[in-house]
Nucleic acid binder design. Structure first.
Lengths: 170, 170
DNA sequence: CAAGATACGTCAACATGACTGACGTATCTC
DNA sequence: GAGATACGTCAGTCATGTTGACGTATCTTG
């Protein structure tokens, strides 16, 4: 079996010394892990007539209430036309509501309605089920390794934006 | 700051004890990590007039030469109509070639042409650049944690298929 | 050996979620 | 008051997935 310790590369070694198989293993696990995690909520979304694009918006609005449209655009890295359609549908179905910015009235602040919170919570329960069982079976040591590697995949230009999600506004 | 060691959950503890924030951190890092890794090859693919669907097929054929269409369908988890279009385009552009199965002549074995190998290698170089720098900055200990967590996300029914990719036929 | 299962291909219609480009309005900043 | 910014929107297109139906070659089995 593939054994990490077999690689004698020191932490500071050149990336060129990493064996191809270790990279392919990462690519594949990332692909399967990501797709299987996202697949796990498709059925629930379909019940509501929503797609994954709606969930991504819902998720980030839940995570950072009173997020502006511009901030959400940066997180999702899609065009405003694409996001516009998604937000309109979420609003029409009463999952989100908006209010003008307090400090800058051009901005539109996004938040979940009670219905939206319920839906997001249900979807989150399913993600938590999958991910927490992976965390538990791997152990806490592995979880922090998992985080460290993924943090290294986020380009520096995006890191502030991503890490700021954790500084909750509460 | 979020600190892993703050959670006192033992490895066998119930998932219910995992804090919400730890799960959200995983969801977000997986989302950003995966999308940023895949984004990194879009430009190269666009040069060839190909999309990500083509890359996924190319990748798995490179990984397991003489893969059958049926095996590729299981890996990609899409319909044969969708895959058919992608394979046809790859063949028209001379990136892949096929030959009938030796043991079962109904099967079509897929492999890369020389051109296809070059393209896949170039795309892989870019993935390796991103992922190996993440591996190096996180350290080998973290890398195996990264693998363990992701392995836990792959449903049992898919694990054999996924892990068998590493047993090269060669 | 005939019957049915399997591997693959293909036609047609459609859904989702992205994209580009152009243009409009309200609001903020200088 | 002029220009930049935040957001919205119309119109057309593309990539990639879907369902359903049907065809053909080949393998397996009673």
């Amino acid at each position: 079996m593939t054994d990490v310790s077999r690689s004698s590369a020191s932490p500071g070694a050149s990336p060129l010394f990493l064996r191809e198989d270790e990279i392919r293993r990462g690519v594949e696990l990332l692909y399967f892990g990501y797709t299987r995690l996202t697949n796990s909520i498709d059925q629930e979304l379909a019940k509501q007539g929503l797609g994954r694009a709606h969930h991504r918006a819902l998720y980030f609005i839940a995570r950072q209430p009173d997020l502006t449209v511009g901030e959400l655009l940066k997180l999702l890295a899609i065009t405003k036309q694409s996001l516009g359609r998604v937000l309109k549908e979420l609003q029409d179905r009463d999952f989100i509501e908006t209010l003008p910015g307090q400090v800058d009235r051009r901005q539109k602040l996004l938040r979940l309605t009670a219905t939206g919170k319920e839906l997001e919570a249900e979807l989150f329960r399913q993600l938590r089920g999958k991910l927490s069982s992976a965390y538990v079976s791997a152990g806490q040591e592995s979880v922090s390794g998992f985080w460290h590697v993924l943090e290294g995949l986020v380009p520096e230009s995006d890191q502030k934006m991503v890490f700021d999600l954790r500084k909750d506004k509460i």
